[in-house]
């Protein structure tokens, strides 16, 4: 069990550094779209909520799990649409 935790902590360390590196030199005009993009990426919480709902037994658990999946799906789908709409603007400029 402890081995698993240590491996996970190393993942944490590397992922945190990756996130920092990716963002640290980003132009101001992309702040809003990027915030939206990272908001979409944490929508992956959906998969955790799905597993949690899938393991739920009692009615209370199922209700909470259902809400979790609902919220996670909204985060993922809404985050994607909003980000994609904003970034579409930037692509148009490439040609013009």
């Amino acid at each position: 069990m402890t081995e698993g935790i240590w491996a996970a902590l190393y993942i944490l360390l590397l992922a945190a550094f990756t996130g920092y590196e990716v963002i640290c030199r980003v132009p101001v005009i992309l702040h809003t779209p990027l915030m939206s993009g990272s908001n979409f990426i944490h929508g992956v919480v959906l998969v955790g909520a799905m597993v949690a709902l899938g393991r739920a037994d009692t009615t209370t658990e199922i209700v909470i799990g259902f809400i979790g999946v609902l919220l996670g799906a909204m985060n993922a789908a809404g985050g994607y649409v909003v980000t994609e709409r904003m970034l579409k603007m930037f692509e148009k400029k490439k040609g013009g």
Binding site: I11, L12, A15, A16, F17, T18, G19, Y20, V22, I23, C24, V26, H31, L34, M35, S38, N39, I41, H42, V44, V45
Partner: peptide, 13 residues
């Protein structure tokens, strides 16, 4: 991975 990357990127942002 996704959560940590967003946590770090979001803090920076």
């Amino acid at each position: 991975v996704a959560g940590t990357v967003v946590g770090a990127a979001g803090t920076m942002l």
